[in-house]
Design a protein around this nucleic acid. Sequence first.
RNA 1: GGCCCCGUCGUCUAGCCAGGUUAGGACACGGGCCUUUCAAGCCCGUAACACGGGUUCAAAUCCCGUCGGGGUCACCA
Length: 527
Amino acid sequence: MVRTRFAPSPTGYLHIGGVRTALFCWLFARQHDGQFILRIDDTDQDRNVAEALEPILRGLRWLGLDWDEGPDVGGPHEPYFQSRRQPLYQAAVRELLARGAAYYDYARPEEVEAERQAAVAEKRPFVYSRRWMAETEADRARFEREGRQPVVRLKMPRQGTLVFTDLIRGRVEFPWANEQDHIIQRADGTCLYHLASVVDDYEMGITHVIRAEEHLSNTPRQIFILEALGYPRPQYAHLPFVAEPGSKNKLSKRKLAQYLKNKDFADLVRRGEEIVARLGLSTEPDKFNPVMIAFYETLGYLPEAILNYLALLGWALDDSAEFFTRDELLRYFSLDRVNRAPASFDPKRLQALQERHMGRLSLEKKVELVLPFAQHVGWVGTPPREEELTRLRAVVEAAWDRIKVGGDILQYDDFFTAAEQLNYDPVALRKRLIEPPGACQLLQEFARRLAVEEDFRAPTLEALLHQFVDEKGIKLGDIIHALRVAVTGKSIGFGMFDTLAILGKEEVLARIRRALSVAAAEDRPGN
RNA sequence: GGCCCCGUCGUCUAGCCAGGUUAGGACACGGGCCUUUCAAGCCCGUAACACGGGUUCAAAUCCCGUCGGGGUCACCA
């Protein structure tokens, strides 16, 4: 039975690298009919855990990475919060002490620090002298009389080599001599991460520890702990870390300003800013940051596209495949195809994948994706009225692949604005209506034709315009641009005839009238 | 600094373990087609094995070294 776990600490956000790890754990568990456990590593948390945890749970849910045991769903190994499992850890510490694998240490922090400095000065590796190690009650009493507080340290081997097999990195060796006597219990009696992690992994029956490379060098001390306790070794798989775009540095939430200098990264943010501005949300880096998964949910990315992209962060199936649905990921993913080199975050690739996933969505699915955005800005009520939905559907269908993320619907605000409120792009207005001689005349004439047209559907309107153009002996381009600006206020948009049909006759005529009067006003001398 | 890891087109990568490929793909870029704008689509193209030795008939692939980049060394997780 395979059991994997994702063990985030409640930091208030879900980092892209973290989700990648969660995804691999989840995929591996699901592929093997195993279980995926979510455990909260909050051994050092004094903040509000519930609040800091919420974005993490939300992100995982949004992506559909469901957990079999953990917060919310419970399970046979409750609680799933390390802060509430301290008695278990303390029992393990007592056991380690009893077996001679750990000791009470009465050194003051500054004394250990002094030893460390001395080692650095002499250019030799630091190894704690164990000078304040207390192995007997007499020692303890003596140090305590000096007013010292004990921590518990691991009594690590000082020779030999640890060898273990990593599912991704193969045979890994670490000389024991490089290991420190790590602290496992603080002076206040609470236990530290490594101890907690080993105890929980054992108690929860974790068979495969899949985590990021940063933990590779932590593995010896963890193996030392578990073997001292008589636990079996789980299988280890250390994933390459997720690196910054265009570099091999670890991706960090705090370096947003620096990443913005990268063009691709900046493009990703800029796209998002337009949407967020229309939504009236904050763009402060703590809330709006591509390093955090919430960014993508806010903008209306597809969870499946994100999953696809994340899977490619360190994994590849072969020399060409890169589009994967969730089911395909489940079918093809394997740990032995995971890279060893750091995986760079590539905004362009993410965007490309998003667009490909959008490409396979049905009209109804696209409307579903876009609906919350339309509701947020009030184009569509809650619950939606039928005619609002009809118009939204028509806009989505006409815009089609121009909608790359859900929030892109917001750029079609001109379909949800009354004629009197329409804003005209001054440059477009000038170039298409004011400057070309006779443009307004033509538009006015065509408007008269529109006014008597009963059938206001796209194909009919197209025929109508072509007929008009033929009669006048002009080219399509001589009028269509003016028409577009007149009815949408912009020089770009989707198909002209779809645009007219969606707006409807009354609205189109009202907009043309208004455009003509705005153009006339602009054109007066002195302006 | 010690220990560990990693260096393939502009970018993200496949290929390396079991040497022989016109070094593959995607994105970006350039050109063309299509075209009412914008998207999209289709066709074509430019473009890479960090460097130096060695082994070999043959090296991106194996070995050694150099250089470069990174991770990790907490009473953080």
